[in-house]
Design a protein around this nucleic acid. Sequence first.
DNA 1: AATACGGGGTT
DNA 2: AACCCAGTATT
Length: 354
Amino acid sequence: MKDQKETEQLLSWYDARRRILPWREEPTPYHVWLSEIMLQQTRVEAVREHYARFLRELPDIHALASADEDCYLKLWEGLGYYSRIRNMHKAAVEIEERCGGEMPKTAEELVRLPGIGEYTAAAIASIAFGQPVPSVDGNLLRVWARKTASADNIKAPATVKSARAYYAERISRTRPGDYNQALMDLGATVCLPKGQPDCDRCPWSRCCSAHLDGRELDFPVVPAKASRRVEKRTVFIIHDSSHVLLHRRGDKGLLAGLWEFPGTEGVLTKSSAVQFLQEHGLKPTEIRKLPPAKHVFSHVEWRMTGYDVFADGLSALPLPEDYAAASRTDLEEIYTVPSAFAAFLNSEAIRSLL
DNA sequence: AATACGGGGTT
DNA sequence: AACCCAGTATT
C-alpha cells in the first residue's frame, strides 16, 4: 500500500471527527444501499428524515421487493431523481429472484444492478462487505484534485478514472469502508467546495499540493455549466368543495409517473383558459387567476400561470385512467405530487379542501 | 462526451 | 442567481 502513513493519519482524523449519521449505526448491506441511493446528489440533511421513514415502512430487501409503486414513490416524495427508487425496487426484485434475497458482495456484481454505478457499488462493497475499493464521489474527487493539484476537468470520466486509480493504491486494506467515509467527511466538513477550505484542520494539509502551493481555490477545475431552458405552462386547480383533479404524468421523462395538477404548455389568458376547459368537457362555475409560480430544475425552469377552477360535482365525474379526483387525505397519503407544484398545493383552493 | 434527471441549502 | 450535493442512465 502506497503512503500508508497518510492513510493512518486520515483514519485517525476520522476516528476523532467523523460525523454521526443514522446509516452508520448498523451498516447492514440494505441500510448502506438505501443510504447511498438516497445520498446521490442529495444532501445529508435532506436524507435523514426520509431514511428513517423509509426504513420504518420497508425495513428490508424483501419488503422493498414486495412493495407497490405507489408506496415506494410516496416514501421518496421530495427527494427528487425518482428513477433512483424505481431502479432500487427493480434491483430488490432481482436480488430476491436471482440471489435468494442476499445482496451481492463484490463491486463487480453490484454494479450490474439497476441504479448502482461505480461509486455506489464501491461504497456498498467497502462499507458493508469490507472490500478495498475506492468509492469516488464528488468529495473524493475534490480532495484528490487539491491533493494532487490536478488541472484536469473534474467532470470528465477520464479524470474520475485517474482519481479511482490513485485511491485504489492507497485505500486501507483493513478499514476500506472507513477510508472511503473518512474522505467523504473530509470533503463535506473540511475540504469544502466553496469558500476557504479549513486546511488547519485537515490531516492531509502537509501532503496536499494545492495547500503547499497556496492554491487551494484553483482546484478542482470545474467546467462551465450548460444554460437552463425556460418553459411556460398553465396549471389548473380544478376542484369542488372536497376533491381536486390530478393528472398522472407519462412514464418517461421529467417527473415520470408522478401526479400533477392538469395543465398545458404556454400561457393562457382567463378567457382562453375557460375555452380550453370547456373543450375538455368541464363546465367551470368560477375561475380565478392565481399568483404566478416558478420552479427551477437542474436543466429546465418552469414558469407557471395558475387558475383556481371551481367545478361542481367533480368527484362524480367519469375520468380517464390517468386522471383522479383526490381528497385532502388522498393528497397527503396516496398521490405523490412533486415539489414543483408546491405553490399550488399551498393555494387557498387546496387548503380549503374538506 | 453531453445531456436528462429534483430538490433544496449556501453563497 | 449561480453553485453544489455520498451519481446513474441514456443518447
